[in-house]
Simulated scan of single mutants.
Amino acid sequence: MTMTMKDLVADARSRVGAVSPQEAEDAVRRGDLILDVREPAELEKDGRIAGALHIPRGILETRADATAQTAEARLTEARGSARVHVLCASGGRAALAADTLQRMGYDAALIEGGLGGWKSAGLPVES
Rank of each mutant, 00 (worst) to 15 (best):
A41K: 08
A41C: 07
A41F: 10
A41N: 07
A41G: 08
E42I: 06
E42A: 02
E42K: 00
L43G: 05
L43K: 08
L43Y: 01
L43P: 03
L43R: 09
L43M: 04
E44M: 06
E44R: 04
E44K: 06
E44I: 08
E44Y: 07
K45C: 08
K45R: 08
K45W: 03
K45A: 11
K45I: 09
D46Y: 04
D46Q: 09
D46C: 02
G47R: 02
G47L: 03
R48S: 12
R48T: 11
R48C: 11
A50D: 08
A50K: 04
A50W: 00
A50M: 04
A50I: 07
A52W: 04
A52V: 12
A52C: 10
A52Y: 05
A52F: 03
A52G: 11
L53F: 10
L53A: 10
H54L: 13
H54P: 11
H54A: 12
I55A: 03
I55C: 03
I55S: 02
I55K: 04
I55R: 00
I55P: 04
P56S: 13
P56V: 15
R57W: 12
R57A: 14
R57F: 15
G58E: 07
G58R: 01
G58V: 13
G58S: 09
G58I: 15
G58A: 10
I59Y: 00
I59N: 00
I59E: 05
I59Q: 06
I59V: 11
I59K: 03
I59A: 07
I59D: 03
I59C: 06
L60E: 01
E61Y: 00
E61T: 03
T62Q: 09
T62H: 10
T62F: 10
R63A: 05
R63K: 01
R63G: 04
R63E: 00
R63Y: 00
A64Y: 01
A64W: 03
A64P: 00
D65R: 03
D65P: 02
A66N: 14
A66M: 12
T67A: 09
T67M: 04
T67Y: 01
A68N: 10
A68G: 09
Q69T: 14
Q69E: 12
T70I: 15
T70R: 04
A71M: 06
A71R: 00
E72W: 08
E72I: 15
E72F: 13
E72Q: 12
E72S: 14
E72L: 15
E72H: 12
E72M: 13
E72G: 14
A73I: 15
A73M: 14
R74K: 13
R74I: 05
R74G: 13
R74M: 11
R74F: 02
L75W: 02
L75T: 07
L75P: 06
T76V: 13
T76A: 09
T76F: 01
T76Y: 02
T76D: 03
E77C: 09
E77Q: 14
E77H: 14
A78R: 11
A78S: 13
A78L: 12
R79V: 10
R79C: 06
R79I: 11
G80V: 14
G80P: 11
G80N: 11
S81T: 15
S81V: 14
S81C: 10
S81F: 05
A82W: 04
A82P: 00
A82T: 10
A82F: 03
A82L: 02
R83K: 15
